[in-house]
Amino acid sequence: MSITKAISFTLNGQATRIEVPVDMDALTMIRDVLKLTGTKLGCGEGECGACTILVDGTAVNSCLMFAVDCDGRELTTIEGLATPAGRSVLQRAFVEHGAVQCGFCTPGLVMQGTYLLRQNPGLTVADIRRGIEGNLCRCTGYQKVIEAIAAAVHEIEKGDRA
């Protein structure tokens, strides 16, 4: 049996206390222990971006982070983006601009896009391309993903929040 450690953090706005094995990664904790399956395992070695979450506001490959390192932090997963008022500006843009095909990479791309928009609401297309470099998508050829994030920039300029 592996050694476990009690940790606490905020997950999608909710205070969370949990005991996790010290060798567990954050992605396994989120998917298998906390049963939030929206965050995807694509490769398990930080190459595909499908497991992207926000940790204290920064986009992170959760497969590369130890679960115990979540202690005291604020985590946001794909399940934490929509509000009772509905899906976020970027989530809606992904739908309206055809950025989703099989959808397996989509949660990671939406999280990465959300991070980029919050960092810099005035993103250029070049910033977007560079910003999603670490997220692999096999279906769309990225074009519509880039258009969706650019459309969200435009929406935010008009006054919607990221």
């Binding site: 939030l36 399956t37 929206g38 965050t39 997963t77 794909i78 399940e79 983006l81 929509a82 899906r87 989530q91 809606r92 992904f94 739908v95 309206e96 055809g98 989703v100 095909q101 959808g103 989509t106 949660p107 939406v110």
Partner: peptide, 11 residues
Amino acid sequence: PKLDAPAKTTG
């Protein structure tokens, strides 16, 4: 827009 897209953007 694809009918299955909304649920794919929310996980």
